[in-house]
Design a protein around this nucleic acid. Sequence first.
DNA 1: AACGATTTGTTCGTATGTATC
DNA 2: TGATACATACGAACAAATCGT
Lengths: 264, 264
Amino acid sequence: MAVPRWREIAEDLRGRIKDGEFAKADPDQQRAANQLPTESKLQENYGAVSRNTVRQAIDHLVSQRIVYKQAGRGTFVVEALQPFVTNLTVGVKTETVGYREGAEREGRTATTSEPRVEIQAADAWQAATLGINPGESVVVRHQRRFIDGQPFSLQTSFYPMAFVQSGATELLQVNDIPMGAMAYLHEKLGVEEAGTVDRISARSPNSGEAEFFRLPDSGAVAMLVHRRTTYDRDGNPIRVTVTTYPADRNEFEYLTGKVSSRPS
Amino acid sequence: MAVPRWREIAEDLRGRIKDGEFAKADPDQQRAANQLPTESKLQENYGAVSRNTVRQAIDHLVSQRIVYKQAGRGTFVVEALQPFVTNLTVGVKTETVGYREGAEREGRTATTSEPRVEIQAADAWQAATLGINPGESVVVRHQRRFIDGQPFSLQTSFYPMAFVQSGATELLQVNDIPMGAMAYLHEKLGVEEAGTVDRISARSPNSGEAEFFRLPDSGAVAMLVHRRTTYDRDGNPIRVTVTTYPADRNEFEYLTGKVSSRPS
DNA sequence: AACGATTTGTTCGTATGTATC
DNA sequence: TGATACATACGAACAAATCGT
């Protein structure tokens, strides 16, 4: 038993899926378009194997986002989603405005929840990235973003509390800052954005993300994580923004030089 | 049975792991550092539940990269890897040189395999991104990259065959182009890089990637995918490069303005 | 090098619950 | 409401990997 039976079955099914065997409906077999045979049919199909073994094979394909299952309905091939491309190039527009315009350019409607504003004691990571001491106060602004009513991304921004104490009290307002937070800080305090550092990573969704984005809890869909730290002319951090996107329907884009965005 | 037993067990274990219960060795229980109790111990622990139920709970944690299992040894908590940060900012250095210097800055050694060079008929995607017709020839250069001997990334570059026909025959050489391919094309043909478009996405590893990076085939580790298209002054594509990295130990970085890379 | 103990992996069978149509 | 299909759960046996003796 060098290679387990469930793996043989999984590989065979993967091949049959790739060959498009389940792409179209099959009225003879009472199979809807895109649907795999039922577990009991597969049991016969693969020589009176146990149902548990078939299920293990299918679960393997589920974990790789090749198929998904729905209790009472059946097992279906995952259809690739048209990715929404977020342009992260630092440029004329603030990132929030850019996100809205990017959506509208494709004829979609972007909305955001009212921000949830909190004051937190900085943990080690917040302190290190904001250049303050752990335990100092941090303004946390959290927003949920939607496109065409569908959950799109979760964004959390961190500002040192010192800005509020210096008079930038709008940071605590529980609604959008229309001109953008950076423009507001510039106007109010003369704080000027001089550069940014972006970090991009991917990880499994946490439970809050899985719920908001309605992701399967199997961990099959990863989250893309975009962290942007904005610095002033003296190299001091002004803000840290962390935005998470489900990786099955999102891509990031950066432009350099004289180019325009292209399909890919 | 609103919430299944295996999920209760999985959640409980997740909490115990987070609380560090298994962080240190426990000689009384013959448990190595980082190791979870054995399946049979957990069976007793959770009230004479079936071993299969315990296994389902653990498999759930495996799919979320919280633990990993090794046959004959046990189940262990995943330790976060120190991420290697790849700076993708388009700047003075070519990307290949930047990768090498980034590694050396951290006292690590970067190596690459000899390139595998192929001529392929362009598929739909290659044709679209390179601005040629499907079926036309494409030069494909593929390299495996290592850091300290560990597999680090897989890179594949695509060039229109027209460059070779115009005299840039080095593109077909089965070894590195020391000055960098872009500099070579500039010197040989006067082709000049005027801009780039980067796309970043994440997906499950394919079988080749899983083997090369020695990833668990459970799909728990995602791949970060970086696609860079380089354009000349007329907006024509010169090259498309696709590089994949395992997401559990890699991050990307983009710098803008006057900043320097910082820990994060 | 061989063996036995331990631990996870594979596979079977069976019964019952829950979701969908 | 019944039929269908996936989900949960139990029990059991043997295989294969690992490790210490």
